[in-house]
Design a protein around this nucleic acid. Structure first.
Lengths: 218, 218, 218, 218
DNA sequence: GATGAATGAGCATTCATTCAT
DNA sequence: GATGAATGAATGCTCATTCAT
């Protein structure tokens, strides 16, 4: 796990800093969702967080810090959820399916946050960007690990490269649901989407027989 | 095909308008790539396009018009390329593979433009956004058509829903190469990426025997 | 009569200059009425006049020239109308009444133009302003002359100062009808206004008996 | 009395808002006098008021707000002065004369402000204009009241319409002194002007014998 | 003589950031 | 620690004027 990039605060009391930042992040996410990072003013963030503009600047140095804090917080939430699901599973096909399903579920729940993050990361300074990108790689790596364990267990037959690309695909298809929900919702429910993607993903890969009969035919 | 949303120009000469807008788009893409839409000033756009700020505003009404013009131009380029590839092909597996490969190729070539577009669309007004999103759906539909023809020819066995989701997947995996090249490049060349994705896509789907022997083993 | 302040034109043909300027003034008055001088652009003036912005500048040097031309033209019209009425009349009370009535009538007809002029004169340069103000004094002087002739004829008994102030009053009350028509119209018709003002003006001044029976009692 | 149209301020402290706006109005009047509303920039207003452009916008929303504030303030001053004079007087001829004299005096003192207002009101938005015009009607109404009381007391013999028109005349003659001082000053002192106008006004109207002996013969 | 594309100084307004209270 | 008034650089956009065709 990486060392956190520090955002400097004037206030000393660590507990207070955390509390204020949580308020700040909560307010900022709502605003960024609505209007994006650039169209949101620091005053609005302060107001949404429930304190004055002066106080806001006691806990951050620049507006960009808020974006970083938001991105960091989102990743923490998603990572945490994933870790719970993934780390404990043995390398079985069933656990893989569950992991994927849960990931898509998280992406659905945090859709707004994830959307915000992907549209605004590029606004992060050269300083913060790599940190955030590395976080993303960590999440892809979790899926790669899961797949690798399945391969080791003989449940899947994949080359290393295939493991990598499929891990990426899972991750991207999860994001896709968050990103393109406006289009996909017209075609599928989340459950259908999960079932279809899982089936396609595994159909050519698993040692099992094709699972096509599992696809819900709405 | 949709009717184009018009961007109003003060200048009457249509040929000149086209020329100046091309200069403008070219300059703007470069700048948006570097700094994003919001951090780019209209003055910078004018300068990059090779004319004065006053002249810029002879060809657009607002800064957002530039973004719209950029997005529109990107879609036109990509669509055009796709149409060439896709429309002429008969519904054979070979033609599908070619179509996918070409799409990924376009995404690689236009990576910067596509990246710009995806990070900035949300900055479009409520007026322009649906137009751009519809363009995207058109492109997904091209793949869906292609797949449907393969199904009709008996080369693939897919339900309608599967056609839809796979069309989306192809599209998103193309974008993924554009978006996440920074990560993927460390793992694959474009050719490998194309080969791997194609294989995974078709392995569980086609009526043929698994095509695993085609995967390049670098 | 003053020498006209010249507005320089690039075009030589005097007849053409006059024609184009008439178009220009007509268009400009309409626009100034609607939006005032400052909110009207030279492009709009050119368009309203029926030619291009380039052509506009063949006949004037600056935007302010248009305002001067407009003001000058309005004064010419009003002066001309007044001169017809006033100069020919002998110094009788009846002729005075007629003169006043006609002036108020003109002010009613040219209300828009006069309104424009009074709200925009201050925008004239230090160069043009005195010229326009002198025009105004000339018009006041016409009334003073008329009154003086009445005094000489024994129809009125007035000191010189009284002549001056009454001339001003007549002029200002005429303008008042133009300026404050929005308020006055709710109270009086033009005819009533003329009758009332005339009566008030003359009641304390003329050698006759009070003319109160002339007041229309609507 | 009308409800005030509110001009929104970001600053909360009402006392400070009033103080800053007073500074602002004072600076703005000076500038508008010199160059008119349109030729005055917001930066100049801020500077004249003694603070930065940013601070200016903490107390107004748009440049037009400054104009409105100026107009409003002028009316308040004039109204206040008038109210003191007019409201307390019984309906005697002497009090009427005093009222008129005081009004002309105010117009002389506030000449610059009044001039500014009359040349710039038309620049007010459709929102603010009616408010300002109504203020004007209120002032005319004060004179009408005064005249009516004189009629009731038998000091004047006037029809209702005559009351209305004379109230308007008084008001306009007051403004005339402010507006046309450049011309009138050559002919009269303020005192002479007041005396002459009062005499003319009352000579045909009052129940007294003509007051011509009161005219100052400078 | 007429046209209209090009120019760029100028302007209103915003907003991140600071700092005295 | 909290507040919010003050700041002024920065920005989108306008428009009078010019000049090559």
């Amino acid at each position: 796990m990486m060392k956190k990039r520090e955002v400097q605060a004037s206030v000393k009391d660590e507990r207070l800093v955390q509390k204020r930042r949580d308020q700040m992040i909560k307010g900022a996410v709502t605003l960024f969702k609505q209007k994006g990072f650039h169209r949101t003013t620091t005053r609005e963030i302060a107001k949404a967080a429930g304190f004055s503009i002066g106080t806001l600047y006691e806990y951050i140095r620049t507006k960009e810090d808020v974006l970083y804090l938001v991105c960091d917080s989102i990743y923490d939430h998603v990572s945490e959820r994933l870790q719970q699901d993934l780390s404990l599973k043995s390398g079985t096909l069933a656990s893989l399916k569950l992991g994927i399903a849960n990931f898509f579920q998280v992406m659905d729940e945090m859709q707004a946050e994830v959307l915000v993050m992907y549209q605004e990361v590029k606004s992060l300074s050269k300083d913060a960007l790599p940190y955030v990108l590395k976080k993303e790689m960590e999440m892809v790596a979790m899926f790669a690990d899961l797949l690798t364990r399945c391969v080791e267990n003989g449940e899947l037959k994949l080359t290393e490269k295939q493991v990598d690309i499929i891990a990426h695909n899972i991750f991207v298809q999860g994001q896709m649901w968050g990103f393109r929900r406006w289009a996909l919702r017209k075609l599928f429910t989340l459950e259908e989407y999960i079932a279809l993607q899982t089936e396609i993903l595994l159909s050519g890969i698993s040692s099992e027989v094709s699972a096509s009969q599992e696809v819900p035919q709405k």
